[in-house]
Design a protein around this nucleic acid. Structure first.
Lengths: 347, 347
DNA sequence: AAAAGTTGTACAAGCGCTTGCATAAGTAAA
DNA sequence: TTTACTTATGCAAGCGCTTGTACAACTTTT
């Protein structure tokens, strides 16, 4: 039958001359075990190279020190930075992190949810995939006692869950005000798909800022893209900039599109920021390194990541007796003015 | 005492009217169970919403479907792309991935190794941290029967381990030849710390290419940096470009330094690529988007990631009877010529 | 019809740890 | 010295699953 491969507490117990329960308690620093015994047990464990089997502990205690992270893709600036922080914070709090990339597939999101439930993770931190429009799998996890925290891409349909977001409306509003403040008055907007709450909010914020400033809202200057890729950015910039009535600034709902917009503009001889101001949502690592550098809006990925883990662990450790209060936390964004909208004070 | 929280195979057994062993075998599609029984058992499981406890399985079988990934940091282009692929491939092969960022700390690498051993992962894919100079923790993992695959940053001191790398010497050699081919003849080099094998190899390749081409190797044109950050790149560019005898091309051992070199050069009125050619190692997502776009060397992160997982799983599933043959796999890199070295054919 | 195979299913031990409870040893109070 | 507490340790059950082996109930062979 099975053979035990590694050193276990039975071996330690024998080596130390105590029972396994004493060994277990000693290793877990249980108050009932005397200091002397603990020293002996730990010495024996060290001598034997004992390494506690986390699996067995997990089975026995019915809980694990693992957090599942559901995220669409890792190789995007914001998300990789978010996951970086998630992992770092989790490590500091004694948790490991299982990464699950959904590739924006609802199906895969559900599959992963099952895996995570089967692995009995302590909690899940998730950014909804673009496709996701039903949420039973989240209910399922919660029924199984797995705590969930939602970050960035959330849905009001998932109830009783901590959510950590930015105020997309307000942020877009302020971004627009920044451009206006730089003296641009004919502003175009490149949006993502508005069925995603987040893009709809951003667009609303943009429109509201124009209205408040008394600027015209030209429907021709609002364009939509499904993926806001570099190529899409170029395509849309071409479209917008070939109109008779050209805008003198463009606000794009992500940063990649901003970059391709700038590249295209310069290519056809439009100077940035002199003739055209460009601002993008979502800071990317390269935003600062471009020529000109790109004004953009930093989403606080570090703060979001930290908070997500902290809140999750807080809920995991919450007294099951009293009901935990779920918060929706809205974090501040930061506008980073750079050259691409710097029309006023030349350097 | 403990209370069982979720549906287990006992419940399923009762519901289906079989013993738990039959249920277990039925759910695992064991050949000894009749088709009829399987159908009944699976139906019962579905009715009850049964979800197998992976922890218990793991304890029982002494193996898990989890791969640990040790990596210095997630928010770097190459690594985030590598991890992206690792996760994707692992998922396709039925494995989950635990991410462990070492932040280039040897200490943390060791801590994580212990965690991974305690979690009884099936295997580990690792990129050595910059600091790492002793390797007992890898031996420890292997003693515990955990398979290891090393990627990119490897060490000859770790024996009997599959390694997946690029040929740094050859790649630097070819990169240098590219610059020479573009008509640059006074070439400087910005190296990382040469105690890292990889940086030493790159430097050798560079030097060899100069020698072969009969070009001078000016020691003043070789500079070293510990971290090759953006700021370091600027500092070194400043140093190199302020010499009386200026080079007309610079090869940097990563891409970030290349970008800051270009930025600095342009700032002081040196035209790229006309007056100065710049080429960088390690493609970053922004390399293509810069003005001018940056010639660089793509490390095949996707291929490396795929291979790493495949080889690891292959070894995990290898017959323990016969000895597994560890390979060192060297993958081709790809030089991506862009504007920053395009001195010959102007567009 | 008896012997020898085939199935198909159940029993029970085991994976390595935690933990409620019992018990033994040590100490303070009566 | 006995009783009443503490304090320290051990016993054994249990977490949910896998799996070697035993054993029925059928088939097939001779």
């Amino acid at each position: 039958m099975k053979k035990k491969t590694r050193v276990n507490i039975y071996d330690v117990a024998e080596e130390a001359g105590f029972s396994i329960s004493t060994v277990s308690r000693a290793l877990n620093d249980d108050a009932r075990i005397s200091a002397k015994t603990k020293v002996k047990v730990k010495a024996a464990a060290r001598r034997l190279g004992f390494q506690k089997n986390a699996i067995a502990t997990s089975l026995s205690t019915n809980q694990s020190k693992v957090i599942g992270v559901l995220v669409s893709e890792l190789n995007r600036g914001f998300l990789s930075s978010l996951v970086h922080t998630l992992e770092d914070t989790a490590f500091a709090m004694g948790y490991s992190v299982i990464i699950c990339q959904t590739n924006n597939s609802h199906e895969r999101e559900k599959t992963y949810m099952d895996t995570l439930i089967a692995s009995r993770v302590a909690g899940i931190i998730a950014t909804l995939s673009l496709e996701t429009d039903s949420y039973e799998h989240f209910e399922k996890a919660k029924e199984q006692g797995i705590k969930v925290v939602l970050v960035d891409r959330v849905s009001p349909k998932i109830k009783s869950t901590t959510k950590i977001v930015i105020d997309d409306y307000q942020t877009a509003f302020e971004g627009t005000q920044h451009i206006i403040g730089q003296g641009y008055d004919k502003i175009a907007y490149v949006s993502g798909p508005t069925k995603q709450l987040l893009y709809a909010d951003r667009l609303r914020g943009f429109e509201q800022a124009l209205k408040v400033a008394g600027l015209p809202l030209n429907p021709e200057w609002i364009e939509y893209s499904d993926d806001l890729s570099y190529e899409e950015g170029t395509r849309i910039a071409k479209k917008i900039l070939s109109r008779k009535d050209k805008p003198n600034a463009i606000f794009t709902a992500n940063n990649l599109a901003a970059i391709s917009t700038i590249a295209y503009a310069r290519q056809i001889g439009i100077r940035v920021p002199e003739d055209l101001g460009v601002i993008g949502f979502s800071e990317e690592p390269f935003s600062a390194f471009m020529q000109p550098s790109v004004t953009s809006i930093r989403q606080p990925s570090t703060e979001m990541g930290k908070l997500a883990v902290q809140k999750l662990v807080e809920e995991i450790n919450a007294d099951p007796g009293e009901s935990y209060i779920h918060q929706k936390i809205i974090l501040d964004t930061e506008l980073i003015p750079r050259e691409s909208t710097n029309r006023l004070c030349k350097r």
